[in-house]
Design a protein around this nucleic acid. Structure first.
Length: 224
DNA sequence: AACACCGACAACCGCTCGGGG
DNA sequence: ACCCCGAGCGGTTGTCGGTGT
């Protein structure tokens, strides 16, 4: 009959994971509805697909989002909005679900602290004025600590984005963007973004300290 | 020690899109 | 041109562990 009673929901067991992993390893991805039929799993095709993509798939990265990944997420989100799967393409090993959760739990929390909507111009400005420059500073600091820079770091003023009212199309942080210029809204070749700099988490991934009382006061002063 | 609260993550649900008949 | 179905995407909810009281 195939009633809803036959469909199992909730957390996956090790046995289910094993069955799914074995099937996909042998037969490849796709045809998710037949996965459930072939393996005897009482899960929907959707559920199988999600479990594979978000948990079982090889080369998944686990653990904290690094500073570089944070910066990339902020930059890509400013470009594509809530296109999580698109953003995830540029963060190898990270899933769209993970990025989405990161955004909802961390970024939206910061917006709440500033009493503004995460999609508002005000919060975008806050990201440009404080968050992203601080991230860039910390990434550069971490990088220069590992290997001496070829040239002296720029003065802090260079890292500060232009004022709110100015043209935002070429803000400073975008000039310092780690997104190659050939990556546009309809990017086709993303290969040079995949793999490389994020290997090895030698940096403190927590960003809570970026959003200090001082920074919040600074922003509230500007917004008032 | 027990309880309440909160944050992070896993999983589900509904909608949309694209391909095949 | 239309319909159906599978796959993918984004929003939402559920669960669990950690922390504060």
């Amino acid at each position: 009959m195939g009633s809803d009673d036959d469909v199992k929901k909730g957390p996956w067991t090790a046995e289910e994971d094993s069955a799914l992993y074995t099937y996909v390893t042998v037969n490849g991805e796709g045809h998710w509805n037949s996965v459930a039929r072939s393996t005897g799993l009482k899960r929907t095709g959707k559920s199988c697909r999600l479990r594979w993509l978000n948990y079982l798939r090889p080369n998944l990265r686990r653990g904290n989002i690094t500073l570089q990944e944070q910066l990339l997420i902020l930059q890509l989100h400013s470009r594509w909005g809530n296109r999580w799967s698109k953003i995830a393409e540029f963060l190898p090993g990270r899933t769209d679900n993970e990025i989405k959760n990161y955004w909802r739990t961390r970024v939206q929390k910061q917006a709440k602290q500033l009493n503004c909507d995460v999609n508002s111009q005000r919060f975008r400005d806050a990201m440009r004025l404080v968050w992203i420059p601080r991230l860039v500073e910390r990434i550069e600091a971490a990088t220069s600590a590992q290997s001496p820079p070829l040239q002296p770091p720029p003065p802090p003023s260079l890292l500060l984005p232009p004022c709110i009212a100015t043209d935002t199309s070429t803000s400073t942080w975008e000039q310092k963007s780690i997104i190659p210029e050939n990556v546009s809204g309809s990017c086709s070749d993303t290969s040079d973004l995949r793999g490389g700099w994020w290997e090895g988490d030698g940096v403190d991934s927590s960003f809570e300290s970026l959003w200090t009382e001082e920074n919040i006061c600074f922003l509230q002063h500007i917004f008032s």
